[in-house]
């Protein structure tokens, strides 16, 4: 067998020596590599959970921390009232000022409009013919227009309802008629004023007026500001209504017919 130039024994020895000298270093290297790979693995596992948590916090921050933040703001405001007032005052002051200016502008426009209307030639001419009615009456009438809410035509002695008109929704008109008659009788009897009748009852925004005719009386409930002009007009209309009923007694036995007459004379007219 031919010998080679390579001394195998010598090479092996070198390898063995290398093994002996570098074993520790290799182990450390292996350990470090494992640790590094482990971290990557953990990161891979943890990252989605952390991302999910961050997204949840972004989306539901008020739910998670709202109470605590509110509480801490409250404490902060309570403990630093002067600073808060100092910070808000310029903003609030400006808002209030802006609102007042806007309202005063509106009021000025309204006053100008009213003055222009009242002193126009047409109005001056109207005022010459209207008698005692004052400008205050006109303004009140425009703002709080009187409205007939209820009308009851009632048998004077029986208290039975003969006909009615109602803007609202009274549950038992018969009962109301009876009670009105009782109250009327009671008041007239209690004050013992021979030949005098209870005419008006006022409650809050309502005025109840009762007008007596032969065998019937008519009660009207009115809301709004009742001016003398409205009262006169209502009185005229009530007289017309009573006259028609008493001239044609069929109205007393035909509720629907009477209801229509009431509406025609007092409401639609």
């Amino acid at each position: 067998m031919r010998e080679t130039t390579v001394d195998n024994k010598k090479d092996n020895r070198f390898e063995i020596l290398k093994e002996l000298l570098l074993t520790d270093d290799r182990q450390k290297f292996e350990s470090l590599r494992d640790q590094f790979l482990e971290k990557d693995k953990i990161r891979e596992n943890i990252n989605p959970v952390v991302d999910e948590k961050i997204d949840d916090l972004k989306a539901n921050f008020p739910e998670h921390f709202g109470d605590q933040i509110t509480e801490s703001i409250k404490v902060q405001i309570r403990e630093s009232q002067d600073e808060v007032v100092e910070a808000l005052y310029p903003i609030m002051g400006k808002l209030v000022k802006k609102f007042i200016i806007a309202e005063i502008t509106k009021l000025t426009e309204s006053i100008n409009q009213t003055i222009n209307d009242k002193f126009s030639l047409t109005q001056i001419l109207k005022r010459l013919f209207k008698g005692k009615r004052t400008d205050a009456d006109d303004v009140l009438q425009e703002v709080f227009e009187p409205v007939i809410e209820e009308v009851f035509v009632i048998g004077e002695k029986t208290g039975l309802l003969i006909g009615s008109y109602s803007r609202g929704n009274i549950a038992d008109k018969d009962m109301v008629s009876g009670m009105l008659t009782a109250i009327k009788s009671f008041a007239e009897d209690a004050f013992k004023k021979e030949g005098q009748d209870l005419e008006d009852i006022k409650f809050e925004t309502f005025q109840l007026s009762m007008v007596n005719y032969n065998s019937i009386y008519i009660a009207t409930a009115t809301s709004g500001v009742i001016t003398s002009e409205f009262k006169e007009e209502l009185s005229d209309n009530l007289n017309t209504l009573a006259e028609k009923i008493l001239r044609d007694r069929t109205y007393l036995n035909d509720e629907d017919k009477l209801n229509k007459l009431i509406e025609d004379i007092l409401i639609l007219d």
């Binding site: 002695k157 029986t158 009788s185 009671f186 007239e188 009897d189 209690a190």
Partner: peptide, 9 residues
């Protein structure tokens, strides 16, 4: 009692 209560019954 007011006498009027008795009327018309």
């Amino acid at each position: 009692v007011p006498k009027a209560y008795f009327l018309g019954s």
